[in-house]
Amino acid sequence: MARSGIPTRERIISAANALFYNDGIRGVSVDAVAAKAGVTKRTLYYHFKSKDDLVAAYLAARDQPNLALFRQWFSETKGGLPAKVEAIFLNLARSARHPKWRGCGFLRTSAELANMPGHPAIKIGAAHKKKFEEWLRATFEAEGTAGPLRLARQVLLLLDGSFAVVLLHRDPSYMETAGEAAHALIEAALPVRGKRRAR
């Protein structure tokens, strides 16, 4: 336990999160993470056997908070299913306007580790995207949409595609446009009763 009251492992992950997200996996050394966490390199390696292990822990720590935030934006939005899903895109577009926004940490990490498909961080990133897809599928299925799995994958593709394009152009309006497309797809897939409620 660190003197700050925050467990040492958590402090290291927090430091890694800030540095990896801002500067990329390859751009940040283990020494830099240790320095930011206020620990020695030896202490860092006591908690994480390698940099790969630390990268995996960094992504694992982002998994549930990110999914919870998507569900929160969804549940807090008034209106029907299309508006609730579109709200995820609109909130992400607002986040993308912040100067410290660097896109999706899972996608950026997978791009950096593209030549290492067996890397544990790649598996964590893939599992994260699958959890989001499964949540959408279950939500669409409960609402009686046509082809819930196909629809969930279409929305996921719109979301991840918008992450990439917004990062490239630095224009969050692409994410808003993707949200409009998701809204239209879901509206078209709803049963008649759902369409009335969505309006």
Rank of each mutant, 00 (worst) to 15 (best):
S50W: 08
V166K: 05
A126W: 10
K195C: 07
Y58E: 01
M175G: 06
K51G: 12
T139L: 11
K195E: 06
T8W: 01
P117E: 02
T145E: 06
R153W: 06
I122E: 03
L151S: 02
A56Q: 10
A189Y: 09
S110V: 00
F140E: 01
F48V: 03
V30N: 14
L151D: 00
L158P: 05
A18F: 10
A114T: 00
L190V: 00
R9C: 02
Y45F: 15
A189M: 11
A164Q: 04
K195N: 08
R108W: 02
K131A: 13
D31V: 15
Q72H: 13
L149H: 08
T145S: 10
V33W: 04
S75A: 15
I186S: 06
K195F: 06
R9F: 01
V85Q: 04
A121M: 04
M116K: 14
R197H: 12
F48G: 08
I186A: 09
D53C: 02
F74R: 04
A198I: 07
A138I: 08
W73G: 07
Y46P: 03
I6D: 12
H128Q: 08
C104F: 01
R196Q: 13
T8H: 01
A111T: 01
E187A: 12
I6V: 15
T145C: 14
R3Q: 15
K130C: 02
A198L: 11
G194V: 09
L107I: 01
N66T: 10
E112L: 00
A18L: 13
A189W: 09
F132M: 07
F132T: 09
V165M: 11
R196Y: 14
K123L: 15
L151T: 02
N91P: 02
C104R: 00
M116Y: 12
R11E: 14
D160M: 10
Y46A: 09
G24N: 09
H128S: 06
A60G: 01
M116E: 14
L44Y: 12
D171A: 05
R153N: 07
A87F: 03
V165R: 07
R193Y: 07
G147W: 13
D63M: 11
L185A: 10
A164P: 01
F70D: 05
P65I: 01
Y46E: 07
P82H: 02
R97A: 12
E76C: 09
L159Q: 06
R9K: 12
K51Q: 12
D23Y: 15
L151M: 03
A182S: 09
I13T: 12
A96Y: 04
K129H: 11
A138Q: 14
T40C: 10
P172F: 09
R153V: 03
R62V: 02
D52Y: 14
D23H: 15
A93C: 05
P191I: 03
R170Q: 08
L107F: 00
A164Y: 05
P82S: 05
S162V: 06
D171G: 02
I122R: 10
S29P: 12
L81C: 03
